[in-house]
Design a protein around this nucleic acid. Structure first.
Length: 430
RNA sequence: GGAGAGGUAGCGUAGUCUGGCCUAACGCGCGCGCCUGGAAAGCGCGUGAACCGCAAGGUUCCGUGGGUUCGAAUCCCACCCUCUCCGCCA
């Protein structure tokens, strides 16, 4: 949710900003309803004032005659109040519905661009290994995994349909090792507090994090109990402090968590169907900050660095990409992706997406802080960043560390979390 | 699933039976000051939020939504949520 004052005061600029996102929003209609709302409020408040004053008089009145007369007069006032109240409710309902459809506005530093093809590569670290350096043609993980007996696509489909798979043995062990290692890394090296939140939440949480109404079709839902499966830990983490006022000295609050994520992938039908890159269910380690407006952009850079630290420790080539306006999405003011190179499938995999949402989620979720004890509460800024998404990190490990005989070397940092295993071999993997 | 209790401002609670002095009290916490070598304690003062308005000021909010009434935290109806006990259970 953006501040309606922006629309009230600079409707043109807001309209342009939204156009730069390649999005659309009913700004004119919002401005019209906002004005009508304020007009009604003015009328209504005058009438209510009149009612309050008169009612008080009636309560104290001794003269029965005058008393009856006043009560009579109040009849008309009450009718007007009821009429205005009804219209106000109507206008506010419409206004809110429209406001929920307005995307977040881009930060001034975000490069203008049509779509992802114009995203800027900010920096790159580690050289992708060439085929010559490998000494053989590296396999994609959808060949490597089944060959090692650690990924089973057929049985995944048997259980749950397309875009599901089963991990076995050292494959699953590798994922577990990554999860625990990454969480420990963020806790000990980056100062995060680890949390374990619910992965299915009430509808209100979906609105608060900006998932509804826009992404309704992409969310799994239990209709009977009105519970929604989260597509990212960002949702429960945002809602941890919903309707709270946080003291400034507690900020920044930095959480790291690991949850399953569920996505219907209705918007990507037919894309990335091979392998484990885009499943309906996947695990993700997620970083999340609640912070002040002054600190948020510095912290966005920090979150990106935190994600890069993981890539670096794994010794996998990676790069940071800055999103242009056309690829920002609905909730971010500014966003970076971190991508790992996957030599088998020959593409850069988005393993992390780091966003500063400024007050967009905080407004929807009513999360505020007090700069000091006397200050008025103001909205916090919220930031999120994957640290990292599991299946894609598993892909990158398998494809970068594969050897000619089909075995995969375990990255050194992971070995303590792998029970000392150094190589995943065909004969021992399962 | 059964029975009961409850939802009041950052937290804890009073007020509801008996509608108007509720413009919501009190405690904790927090802020300022006094005191002190410094602090704690103590004492004094202050301290909810949102919206409209240049301002003065006004309006709204006692879980949510309706209703009754000149007037509702208080009465009536519906719904939501939380807790406790029992049952079942990883």
């Amino acid at each position: 949710m953006i501040d309606i004052r922006l629309i009230r005061e600079n409707p043109k600029e807001v309209q342009e900003a939204i156009s730069s996102l390649g999005a659309d929003a009913p700004i004119d209609e919002i401005a019209r309803l906002d004005e009508r709302r304020r007009d009604i409020l003015q009328e209504l408040e005058d009438l209510r004032h009149q009612r309050n004053v008169t009612s008080k008089q009636i309560g104290q009145m001794k003269d029965e005659e005058k008393r009856k007369q006043l009560i009579e007069e109040m009849g008309g006032v009450n009718d007007s109040i009821k009429t205005f109240e009804k219209e106000l409710r109507n206008v506010e309902e419409n206004l809110e519905e429209l406001m929920y459809q307005v995307p977040n506005l881009p930060h001034e530093s975000v490069p203008v661009g049509e779509d992802e093809s114009e995203n800027k590569i900010v920096r790159e670290e580690g050289k992708p290994k060439t085929e010559a350096e490998f000494g053989f043609a590296p396999l994609p993980h959808w060949d490597l995994g089944p060959q090692l007996g650690i990924i089973d696509f057929e049985r995944g489909v048997k259980l749950s349909g397309s875009r599901f798979y089963v991990l076995y043995g050292l494959g699953y062990r590798l994922q577990r090792a990554l999860i625990n290692w990454m969480i420990d890394f963020h806790v000990t090296q980056h100062g995060y507090t680890e949390v374990y939140p619910p992965a299915i939440v009430k509808e209100i949480c979906m609105w608060g994090a900006g998932q509804l109404p826009k992404f309704r079709d992409n969310i799994y839902q239990d209709i009977e109990d009105d519970l929604w499966l989260v597509g990212t830990a960002e949702i429960p983490l945002t809602n941890l402090h919903r309707d709270e006022i946080v003291e400034a000295d507690k900020l920044p609050i930095k959480y790291v968590t690991h949850t399953p994520c569920f996505r219907r992938e209705k918007f990507s039908a037919g894309r990335d169907v091979r392998g484990i890159k885009r499943g309906h269910q996947f695990d993700k380690v997620e970083m999340y900050h609640f912070t002040t407006p002054e600190a948020s952009y510095g912290e966005l850079e920090q979150i990106v660095r935190n994600a890069e630290d993981i890539c670096r420790a794994l010794e996998i080539p990676h790069r940071v990409v800055e999103m242009v306006t056309g690829d920002l999405g609905f909730v971010a003011s500014k966003k970076y992706d971190v991508e790992m190179w996957a030599p088998g499938c020959g593409e850069w995999l988005e393993v992390s997406s780091c966003s500063n949402c400024e007050t967009f989620q905080a407004r929807r979720s009513n999360i505020r802080f007090r700069a000091d004890a006397k200050a008025k509460p103001e909205f916090v800024h919220t930031l999120n960043g994957s640290g990292l998404a599991l299946p894609r990190t598993v892909i990158a490990v398998l494809e970068n560390y594969q050897q000619e005989d089909g075995s995969v070397i375990v990255p050194e940092v992971l070995r303590p979390w792998m029970g000392g295993v150094e190589v995943i071999r065909i004969e021992e993997a399962g």
